[in-house]
């Protein structure tokens, strides 16, 4: 299954890109994907990262084909 992954702020800088499409095994969880990408791009301050699936931060579920997964560093608005 394919998911569209977006990176923001410091995470986009570490990844060297702001989005990519990843082909994942069916049944992959948000946590699996998070850990995999943190390792792949050596993303710092992993504990401060929030993941939004289809713009929702409450997402302790399995990913589905076509999901949009966003890696969000700490918010800094205002």
């Amino acid at each position: 299954m394919k998911v569209n992954v977006k990176y923001f702020g410091a995470i986009a800088e570490s990844a060297g890109k702001s989005e990519e499409v990843l082909d994942l095994e069916k049944g992959s969880s948000v946590k699996d994907l998070k850990n995999q990408q943190i390792k792949k791009y050596q993303i710092q301050d992993a504990d401060s990262i929030q993941i939004a699936v289809n713009q929702d931060l409450k997402n302790e579920v399995e990913l589905k084909d076509g999901d949009e997964v966003a890696f969000l560093p700490p918010f800094a608005g205002g």
């Binding site: 923001f8 702020g9 410091a10 966003a70 969000l72 560093p73 918010f75 800094a76 608005g77 205002g78």
Partner: peptide, 14 residues
Amino acid sequence: FVEEIKANVPIFGK
């Protein structure tokens, strides 16, 4: 509004 914006809106600052 100000507190909610600062805490909950995905805005990033370089």
